[in-house]
Write a protein that binds this DNA or RNA. Structure first.
Lengths: 136, 136
DNA sequence: TATTTAATCTACCGTTTTTATAGGAAATAT
DNA sequence: ATATTTCCTATAAAAACGGTAGATTAAATA
């Protein structure tokens, strides 16, 4: 399961994608509309900013905004950023790989199945963007 | 990611599947061969027994054994048993469904994508059994 | 029947992660 | 100046994770 953090991030990003041409959006506005704790959301948006997903502006008329068009922000990127690995096992993770301590990957059937799951998942998440999940 | 608990469970079940016709297997034997803390493994196997996956026998000559042939024990079942939901969001979980607090599922694009991920994952995990992951 | 073996059960414990919250500093607009 | 809003760091409660301890129960066997 995705953490609350990542779930909130998606809702906030959807909101920003929907208001993409209206300049910076207040944290407080997103928090209210999406029913998220404002202080928690503050941390999340800051993290997204430091990762290069969002831009921000301080002071009156300030807020957060997407740095790229929604169609270029892939869902897999957001998940990896906030939740870490998408794979079900460390030994099949592409971005957070760790060697198994108690099995030999070359003969481990579990490894093979979990790699399949990873591929099926990534095929979707790496090809779906914010544009694909905004409300229609 | 799967918890250590579920990962250990898989390794233990693989071991039991490999020794399926040799009667009950000691916890201590599995723990040693698979390099798992014996007390932790004890809890895991007990949980699998209470869920009807394993049988057990006390006393000398005792141990744990599979109640069904390996090909009938599906990977999805084990994960759900020990880790809970397989889906990435509560609102797309088939077995642990919970309503979204901050979105309307009928218009939520995220919901739709995550349902796709769930289906792709389940297509694999509900059709792969212990038999498919024993060492060849 | 006594002994040994091995699962069963309940409870507990320490660490890390998660989910926040608090408050002041820094930047910007007016 | 002042009001606004993000930035940053620290803290904290709660839950999850990973593992331990020890007494109990059941079965085999000598």
């Amino acid at each position: 399961m995705l953490s609350k953090k990542t779930q909130y991030a998606f809702h906030a990003l959807i909101y920003l994608a929907e208001h993409v041409d209206k300049g910076p959006v207040l944290i407080s506005e997103i928090a209210e509309k999406k029913n998220i704790s404002i202080k928690f959301l503050e941390n999340i948006l800051l993290e997204l900013k430091n990762a290069g997903v969002l831009g921000s502006k301080k002071g009156k008329g300030g807020g957060y905004y997407l740095l790229k068009p929604p169609k270029e922000v892939m869902l897999a990127r957001i998940i990896r950023l906030l939740d870490g690995p998408i794979a079900l096992l460390p030994c099949v993770s592409l971005n957070y790989y760790e060697k198994c301590s108690n099995c030999d990957e070359t003969i481990c059937g579990l490894h093979e199945v979990m790699a399949k799951v990873r591929d099926a998942t990534l095929k979707i998440l790496e090809n779906k963007s914010l544009k694909d999940i905004v409300h229609r």
